[in-house]
Write a protein that binds this DNA or RNA. Structure first.
Length: 104
DNA sequence: TCATTGGCTATCA
DNA sequence: CTGATAGCCAATG
């Protein structure tokens, strides 16, 4: 099982109206330092329509990148029920955690 | 060679 | 300054 497949599976499991971050995906994959690899995998996007990559954003609440453009990403997320304030998402309300780690 | 990992830089809030 | 990151590059398996 490649990291690529793991990441893709995880992203597919994100429910509608929720979002996650590159960090969280890398963490769930067991490689918290390899968020770059995750980003590269999504950027290379083996199946752009099959994978809801628009639900993957930055930890700061920014949208990050998107194959169809960040504007499209914002529109899509709004339609799914995610409130966006000037390109930013409420992580406390919409963040989806694959696993629960040490809370600070 | 290819896929994945880890280090470093620049940019933004 | 701090933290984060859909980048780039080199090393590893």
């Amino acid at each position: 099982m490649s990291l690529k497949e793991t990441v893709l599976e995880l992203v597919r499991k994100i429910p509608v109206g929720k979002v996650t971050t590159y960090k969280e995906i890398a963490l769930a994959a067991g490689k918290p330092n390899s968020w770059r690899a995750v980003a590269k995998i999504l950027a290379n996007n083996p199946a752009p329509i099959f994978i809801p990559c628009h639900r993957v954003i930055k930890s700061s609440g920014h949208l990050g990148g998107y194959v169809f453009g960040t504007e499209k990403k914002e529109e899509l997320l709004r339609k799914e029920g995610v409130e966006i304030s000037k390109g930013r998402v409420d992580l406390k309300r919409y963040m989806f955690y694959f696993k629960i780690h040490r809370r600070r």
